[in-house]
Amino acid sequence: MKHVLALDGALSKFKPLQTIISYDDFDRGLCGWIDLHPNYVGENFNTLRYSHVDKTQWGPIMLSSASFRFAGTHGSMDGTYSMKLSTRPVAGKYTKAPVPGSLSHGIKRLTTHLPKGLRQFEMWYAYTPEQDRQGLSEQAMRAFGMFFDIQDDDYRYFIGARYLNAVDGQMVRKWQVFQAKDVSDLEWAYGVENDWCKRGIDAMWYGKRRQDGSTDGFEWIPEGYQDLCYNESDDKINWSYFRLLIDTEKREYVELQSGSTVFDLRGMKPTLTAPYARIKGLFNPGVWVENDTDRRVFFYIDSIVISGGDE
């Protein structure tokens, strides 16, 4: 059967693959995105296992009009509302494990339905710290990123990218991809025996971090320095384009586009982990933001398109 579709005009700012898996315009609600929280499957709905990283306190996501004290309402790129990730006003040093609340994290829970092949995540986003003090605060944003959490017949793997904006107040402005160093599961989980997270899983907060911005969970993208548009005041946000193209057949990165810059990632691979129980076919996109100082930072997403199939 041949389909003839009249596409939403707002899709023209994306370039999806053949099959659109989801199109999330946050003027229509949160579209299935939810806070990330641990598994409350223990006694009295507590977690079963101890983890060095407390994942119960990540800042909540919300529908935002991007409103500010002096500017009023920014709205979103296509209307009024975006999805906002907001950290709590607490942060630790970069080289320590993230403290409770220093990140905010959104996730959408999917399973795959297409043959293995190309998959793509696109979003229009903006970011800023809370304008709770005078001055310009670009360096209060430590990092933001996006990933797919995938489990196929043989492996589970995280495949995604992070923009490392600042480390302990010093600007870095470089892109990295999820790729774990050759460390043990014990080292990966900050020395905690029998942690849920094995090497390569949840690099957003696992894996040792070093002062130069490197970590056991990420690899630098060659020539990955990029000045993003931050503007001249914490209440002026500019919508920017992000696109990550991956290949689930080869289990490798293909391309990262940020604004008009395209990074060729062919040949770079994520870290493969033995499959977990009960999550076969998992295809979860996730986004997160991390602060660098004791203040809230905000990451706004106007819209997201996830697609698969041929280009």
Partner: peptide, 28 residues
């Protein structure tokens, strides 16, 4: 209608005055 249930504060222990995380709710 749109709807969101948010666990704004999740199992915190408070011993002094406190405020919950600022939530935007202009759409509601």
């Amino acid at each position: 209608k749109n709807f969101q249930a948010s666990a704004v504060e999740r199992r915190i222990t408070v011993t002094h005055d406190f405020a919950s995380h600022p939530m935007e709710a202009g759409w509601a």
